[in-house]
Design a protein around this nucleic acid. Sequence first.
DNA 1: AAATCATTTCTATAGTTATCGAAATATTAT
DNA 2: ATAATATTTCGATAACTATAGAAATGATTT
Lengths: 192, 192
Amino acid sequence: MTTQEQEFELLGFFKALADENRLKIIGLLAQQPRSVEELSAVIGLGMSTTSHHLARLAKAGLVSARTDRHYYIYSLHTDTLKDMSQRLLQDEQIRQLSEPASSDAYDQKVLSSFLDGEGRVKTFPAQDKKLQVILRYVVKAFEPGQRYPEKQVNEILLRFNEDTAFLRRSLIEYRLMGREGGGGAYWRIDPD
Amino acid sequence: MTTQEQEFELLGFFKALADENRLKIIGLLAQQPRSVEELSAVIGLGMSTTSHHLARLAKAGLVSARTDRHYYIYSLHTDTLKDMSQRLLQDEQIRQLSEPASSDAYDQKVLSSFLDGEGRVKTFPAQDKKLQVILRYVVKAFEPGQRYPEKQVNEILLRFNEDTAFLRRSLIEYRLMGREGGGGAYWRIDPD
DNA sequence: AAATCATTTCTATAGTTATCGAAATATTAT
DNA sequence: ATAATATTTCGATAACTATAGAAATGATTT
């Protein structure tokens, strides 16, 4: 089962139960199976409306009907209800509600705001979170595992902005690059 | 907590989660707390819309915000989610979703269809379920605990319909009255 | 086969809600 | 204080859904 299907299933489950009259139906069917006519009389709705609600509940796998004499007798699928609520108790199920990949949408938005057409940094964002997006973008100009003297670092950073000192300092501060105190060698720190 | 409040709370819970984008928000906040701006960028909605969704989730007690720097950081209340889903696992919670008293609405509807203005039975319904409603109505004319000879039973039943034999037989069949084989004594069986 | 009855499907309408853009509010930085 | 920025509130619109009544379908009895 894919993440999207999971989400859809859970969404259908919640939508099915997000109605006052459908909750009442669930409650009545939990007591005993009942016909459409009986249900609509008890909760005070037209039979077509009740039928509609039952169809939605059935689509979510919460009820089903068997035919008995003149009547369609609907009954509750308690196990579906319990399966779903138990799934909610599992942390992983909740975390997977949003596709993990889509997280760069935010980065894209920040980048398009603060970069010009040639990929240079127009201005530096004041907020940490946005600045980090910019820095993660800039640091890709360095090869992982390679060591750079300060002079070369400045040359590379100059492609992004005049203020190489600020960039250099920030890259160190946010632990995207490392620096060796003595010889002035820099290197890119791998993201983990 | 009254039954109505319970239902309302559960209804609010389901309504809060019955939206695709709110489910995504829940998923994102399960990974880590985030700001409105970040959330709206990632799921691709306007910030006002995202704010609206967050407000609904907060109303249901599912998220809350703390302020940090420029941002309002929203985080997930995992315990609310778990409380609710555990409540669903308890059978009593589900049965109480509909007020128990309201079950006579159906009876009322059946009675008004098959009784005339004086409380007499116009015709006998063909369906078991409806016939039972009529019989439960008729049997109230007998005092619990008292014994009636057949002749008196017929007199009483005559107030409801000419066909006293059918009524008598049905009352026995559906175990609303008992009969003593020998002397022909009848009595009303208490509902349990 | 015809008749009766329960249920569903169809059609239309009213109420609710998701959405966005603009204006207002709140918070932090200068 | 003033400016900058993030968030919420407001107003309007579009999409969705609950609802009822009428017509169609399906099932049961005679």
